[in-house]
Design a binder for these strands. Structure first.
Lengths: 330, 330
DNA sequence: CTGTTAGCGCATTCAG
DNA sequence: CTGAATGCGCTAACAG
């Protein structure tokens, strides 16, 4: 079923059908009605690709995520998708996987689909290879990185001051008399390195010496990973008083490890996560967490992309402020 | 940049460029090389929409989900997306929201994009309005419903025997001497009604009278909803011995409610969830849960859709078997 | 081995 | 108010 089929049966030209579909003025009410009736009769809907070809506009945007199963990423994608769908855009959301090569490839896939805008979810996209791929394949398309940044004229970044936030976490622990504090990293990403730096700066500011800076890396970004890392800390430093984790998911494994090894939380050791995720509300005790403003971050990113889609493509860099949500684990 | 631009600079015809791009045989090695060089020079990639128009194939599939933030739905979508992306399809994943009208509208959106296959995630899509919309808009496109079914020649369903599974949960509780058992429903969906039926059948089989069938509805599908419902049960029936929940997320709220009200789990009251989700591993005690085989369900759905995409469109109905994973809450 | 031509489904001139 | 012609970027059939 095409406009020609409709046109033939209505006894008009295809252009007339096109005009009716697009609500263009200057059509006799009678013919308009006849055409509309046929459109309804056959449930006809114009082909978006064909229309896109002539209009030079696909009304598609791409959302690249390392792994859509990660809750804070998909939560953010949800917010952005809602906003863009409302404005008539179709979002193609893809899981790239962790490797840089794949991320670059997926940018190429998006070029192939001629997307008009791109969201890159997470600091993991702030890499040189991604930058190069953007320059080669999407040099003009508005791109927004959520919690990341690349210095390119068509790329914007919305960031959170997670480094300062972690520093405040350290402050909070010190204010409760906890001075021996460790930091657990779930993976090496720009965002996590910033968090680690916040930990280091906070500790230094409180007069910690080098050997009092305790950074551990979880074997994987999971509950089990947090469990393992925490067990190691608790064994190697039984007098530890506080642990800050790069994400809630891993912190939640830490809570279990502390319980299993007989450490009382928060009396003996205080635990803090990052993300303000559902995980932190489910565990026992409930997790104190650094809220990195995912909702606002996503809304802001969607807003910037929307401006870009409307023609105002420029590079911007915004910063939001994190805050601590204190619950039962501190 | 189009094939014509490449062709002109290479001093050949557009069709020659097309042949090179598509690796067609019968091109002099010399010209092939020259064209390939220019393609690389300009990072040229053919427009998927234009190609789709002439090939009559978009290589796009749609994945409709009520809410992509629901973990078991997005986990399933991930598996399917991986499989289809690997085969060169581009997935457009959309959150429809809970209303029937929106679900029907989104099916229309997918028609507009001329998708070649559709995944409908969850039993919430087994409704008359969705069925009608499929008949009107996508009567020929292969469609697979994950954990749902519609009687249409182009629609397949992959289901889990969650009713029998819940019956086994009731059996498990009885085997531990727990006879006073309630069931909590997080929402009214075909799948949840099946689960409820399993509870009722199980109770009846163990000789329960009507007044011993205790079905509660959580005010919302969330931790808080499960908390509220459980509090009500515990207050109205302080001698309750077991509670089965329609999903882990809600069960996890129940664990907290039991703790707050001073009920010991599992000694006093045993709790069972459904989904085998991460939530159940995070909470304390860890949740016994009915594994509804999400992974296999998704793989099977992807497999059936793949067959449909390859031309073998037919209506099929498959059933997988759930199993109980016993942890600390029973 | 390669160029010419036509057409995929649509919107947009320009005539009338 | 409406129709015929053109082209968006691409592939395929047919010549040569």
């Amino acid at each position: 079923m095409t406009i020609y089929d409709i046109a033939k049966e209505a006894g008009v030209a295809a252009s007339t059908v096109s005009r009716v579909i697009n609500n263009k003025p200057g059509i006799k009410a009678e013919t308009r009605l006849k055409v509309q009736e046929l459109i309804r009769k056959y449930n006809y809907i114009p082909d978006a690709a064909a229309r896109g070809l002539v209009m030079q506009s696909t009304r598609m945007v791409g959302i690249l995520i390392v792994d859509i199963r990660v809750t804070h990423h998909i939560d953010s994608a949800f917010v952005i998708e809602q906003e863009l769908t409302k404005r008539g855009y179709c979002c193609i959301t893809m899981s790239t996987g962790p490797t840089d090569e794949r991320k670059a490839e997926y940018i190429q896939l998006l070029e192939q689909r001629r997307v008009e805008g791109v969201i890159l979810m997470g600091s993991m996209f702030s890499t040189d290879l991604v930058k190069k791929s953007i320059q080669e394949h999407l040099p003009k398309v508005p791109i927004v990185i959520v919690n990341g940044y690349l210095d390119l004229p068509n790329v914007s970044g919305v960031l959170v001051d997670e480094d300062a936030g972690v520093e405040h976490c350290v402050d909070l622990l010190f204010s409760k008399g906890k001075q021996k504090i460790a930091f657990v990293l779930d993976a090496v990403s720009p965002a996590n390195l910033k968090k680690r730096q916040g930990y280091i700066d906070g500790m230094r500011r409180h007069g910690a010496a080098n050997e009092q800076i305790l950074v551990y890396e979880a074997p994987e970004s999971s509950v089990a990973g947090g469990y393992e890392a925490t067990k190691r800390i608790l064994v190697e430093h039984p007098d530890i008083q506080g642990i800050v984790y790069s994400i809630d998911l891993v912190a939640v494994g830490g809570i279990r490890a502390a319980y299993d090894l007989g450490f009382r939380v928060p009396e003996q050791v205080s635990l803090i996560g990052i993300d303000n995720s559902l995980y932190g509300e489910i565990c026992m005790p409930k997790l104190t967490t650094l809220d990195n403003r995912l909702q606002e971050l996503s809304e802001t990113a969607a807003g910037i992309l929307r401006e870009g889609l409307e023609g105002n493509v420029q590079s911007r860099k915004l910063m939001l402020f994190s805050r601590i949500i204190e619950r039962e684990s501190t």
